[in-house]
Design a protein around this nucleic acid. Structure first.
Lengths: 239, 239
DNA sequence: ATCGGTATTTCGGTATGCACAATCGGCCCG
DNA sequence: CGGGCCGATTGTGCATACCGAAATACCGAT
């Protein structure tokens, strides 16, 4: 039961597991996290659990709550702050991706996005939540900036938590995929300005949805993408 | 020697101290960091030192080196990656600061910047290195986004390390202060586009300096700032 | 029954001990 | 003389014990 390869390190395992459990809402925002309880849950002593908690604390997924720890609750203010950072980083990511990604890489990204379609159609909100973040992280990967990709990853660890609450209506997923298509279309045309604008709109849409106030409006006219023209089916009447 | 107020926590103290020692180059990039040695240095056991190292590792100031730890060495590639993120965040910060800071707050920022002048004139590179980062963090504070301010803080923890090496010539400080004046001028005029452009130029200048290749050129014509017109003294001949 | 004070329990912060992995040096063999 | 094997050393990973503080529960007095 000891550490040999750095990958199989218990503290890293616990860190990854705990983060996954938080992202997947097996721990919900506000849930208390006790060292001993987590140690029992994941099998280990308090030491590696503490290390995991320290990291999660540093990354903002966990906060101090009284004498203990708890899963972070994102207030509307926090969401706005988070998404301002997100807007900055996503715009940079898409710009760099356009400048550096090969046509082949963009084709793979297109395929990835098309893979979201069946998930949306089967109304698997949780799965699409993951895929949505994965899509944005893929763009960051194409920016050929590992640090940016890492920051994007951490950002989306929080984004996934936030999105879960207010995005339980499918419309969110449909809108998101439509946004993704426009972003990708601009990327394929190597149109940095439009891609940045679309990304900005995409990010701000979520905040608008979350806050409830209206968003300026989309942006540019050109929507003739070299993509199979698929439109989201009409959303059913609100049940 | 035990924990009562959360602020006086030994592990936090050690974290802050170690980070300060790294930022101030009392530990240089590449220096090995041993748990026991650090425990002796800061007075404590390995446990709180481990916690501090875990956080620094997560933040990228420390890396694993073989079986141990070492202060991160930033390769030219890393610097480019770091500064791409910096460009994105600094532009967002200056934009939000313009939108949200009061005239009084901008006046305080002006005063802060003017305080840099004597430091530059007395050639205190290390001190200006700190003040330069502090200036940018002040802008982030005016963005009224605590998360962005925190990210800026972490970014500059790394920036300070990077800057130390290639910026040992004063010209860097002079140029930096001139850049700061132009950024601040645009902020006082509430000119978002120019401020972002100046910030972008400022950030890219450092990368250019670091990499050695030329930078596009400054940007806009308007340089009539409502600031005391002070020009950096002619730098002495390269000794 | 309620309030206040105290005892108890709980939980995190720190120190320490043990085990294992990696590294480096020396020694033996080719 | 050089290279590979092996052991001692070093330093981290994990577990556990101890301490003190804070929350809680209990109990007695009013």
């Amino acid at each position: 039961m000891n550490a040999r390869p750095a990958a199989a390190q218990l503290s890293r395992q616990i860190y990854a597991q705990l983060k996954a459990d938080i992202s997947a809402f097996r721990f919900k925002p506000g849930d208390p996290l006790q060292e001993l309880e987590l140690a029992a849950r994941y099998g280990g002593s308090r030491t590696p659990v503490r290390e995991a908690l320290t990291r999660l604390l540093d990354e903002g997924l966990v906060v101090r709550s009284g004498r203990g720890y708890a899963v972070t609750i994102f207030a509307p203010e926090d969401v706005r702050h988070l998404y301002e950072i997100r807007e900055a980083l996503e715009k940079m990511a898409v710009r760099l991706a356009i400048e550096r990604a090969s046509d082949g890489e963009l084709a793979l990204l297109t395929a990835e996005m098309e893979g979201h379609r069946p998930v949306i159609e089967r109304d698997d909100i949780a799965a699409f939540n993951e895929l949505d973040s994965a899509f944005h992280i893929s763009i960051a990967r194409l920016s050929a900036n590992p640090l940016l990709e890492q920051e994007m990853q951490r950002l989306h660890d929080k984004v996934k938590i936030v999105r879960n609450r207010e995005l339980s209506r499918h419309q969110g997923s449909f809108n998101a995929m439509a946004d993704h298509r426009r972003i990708l279309g601009a990327m394929l045309r190597r149109d940095v300005a439009t891609a940045e604008a679309e990304m900005r709109y995409h990010v701000r849409s979520v905040v608008a949805l979350y806050y409830g106030y209206q968003e300026p409006r989309p942006l540019n006219p050109t929507l003739d993408l070299p993509l199979p023209d698929w439109q989201p089916p009409l959303p059913g009447p609100p049940s």
